[in-house]
Design a protein around this nucleic acid. Sequence first.
DNA 1: TCCCAAG
Length: 620
Amino acid sequence: MPTSWADSVANSAAENAAVGSSANNGVGSTSIPARSSYVPPHLRNRPPSSDPPAPAYSGPSSSIDRPSYGAPQGGIQWGGPRSDSGRPGFSSGRIGGGGWNSRSGGWDRGKEREVNPFGDDCDAEPAFSEQENSGINFDAYEDIPVETSGDNVPPPVNTFAEIDLVEALNQNIRRCKYVKPTPVQRHAIPISLTGRDLMACAQTGSGKTAAFCFPIISGIMKGQFSQRPRGARTVYPLALILSPTRELSCQIHEEARKFSYQTGVRVVVAYGGAPINQQLRDLERGVDILVATPGRLVDLLERARVSLQMIRYLALDEADRMLDMGFEPQIRRIVEQMDMPPRGVRQTLLFSATFPKEIQRLASDFLSNYIFLAVGRVGSSTDLIVQRVEFVQESDKRSHLMDLIHAQKENGTHGKQALTLVFVETKKGADSLENWLCINGFPATTIHGDRTQQEREHALRSFKSGATPILVATDVAARGLDIPHVAHVVNFDLPNDIDDYVHRIGRTGRAGKSGLATAFFNENNSSMAKALADLMQESNQEVPAWLSRYAARSSYGGGGRNRRSGGGRFGGRDFRREAPFNRGGSGADYYGGGNNSGGGYGAPGGYGGGHGPGVTSAWD
DNA sequence: TCCCAAG
């Protein structure tokens, strides 16, 4: 696989050398598209004109374990922004065609037709600046312990000003009213800017999206990328951001558009359930950052409407979910079996609030000499969330829910500014409960995978606006969704996995605000008792005595049929630290893994992060 | 079971 990549690098170098002549006329769906070589992150910031015409890639740097790719003969890629004018034949049917490196195209496009995503000129949607972003309660994030491991971890920053981001991005950060970076941003952004791969754990609602978007946008703006191929109908994004649900992809897209406003960096979203034609048109107008759900992306790749050849940045949001059973084959296919540059060549960023060790092990297939980062103290942001567990028989759940909501109404915690999010186990159960609530006079709506995308989006809007202040949801809404004013999360049915519980309750208590989470527990959930009791204890929550008894009783039975974390619950620690101990155990097959795409796992080597062995993090 | 393409 590296060979073919190197080959195509060489090919494209040759093709690029011919730019301006008509030699490129062969570019089409079947030929190898022209593109020049990869420029490694540590060389990217150089002004093109002052750089010697050196090979784009001169082998692995001392500190970064990157496979070496045959350095294509150089000069070509440093030639500075190239004029497109010599290739009149290829702009037909495409506007701008390229994205960032058609520099002029990028800037002009940004200035001329970009819709202002901040809604400055539209009061109808005050959402962005007022709700989510200002008013982050930084006091809630004081004294948060941070754990890093890996080689040469760059130091954190304290302000956005000391980060070398491009000015246009800084301006957008101000527009967002971000005054200072959140803890995960303080650490993750400098790491990402040095070009290192990263596995980052940070509590729900702590600003992870910006933490991976800023370095990507900045890197794209500063990078000297070759002219991307044009013609055909294939587009070549520079960055790919994958997430497990359509709504989350939409949300990331909206955020990323704000961050990239007037930067010329173009962000496009592609997800299923929506007509593909509009998405194809969006793509054809040019794309630098593609935000997508896996299924639709595979579709686009199969249609050859998207190529991953030029990907420099790969970000997986909710990365542990993306590598969980259901998604892992698709992700592997996208990342390892399409035309994406291998790990070490691209930069890979994985983010989640939870990272079980087994998933970390899988994830290391996609990473090269990465830094592990965990931000949060024991209990972390979840101790902003008051957690309650109530023993409720299955048959009593509905009336009990009704009691809760009545109580909320009485003390003013229900309504437009105090939304209630109710999680259930199944899609049918969601419909049924929604219906029952409506019949009983509680305006509710529901979101789950059996609803059409239109219905899903309408439900979310209706909930956010307060028109239906109760949303009944399956786990489709468990992760990542940033819904302001969720005052109460009810686990009507507990999940079977404690990590899912963490994500669900994380829909409240965001951006340093407090929240309430209530869980209905009965015999059917006894396998969750221990994990739940432990989590609550770590989060400084009061654990009911009856739950502790359940926990003691059920713990011998295996502590939950947690599909992922055989041992430690959260896996917030870098699994590499414990790898030697795991070797004889269930992870024995790990080192021999047959799936290594690039010649074995870069030995975990020096964990010299400077942490004592006793350090515990929020994920323990 | 949940989520990830359509048809």
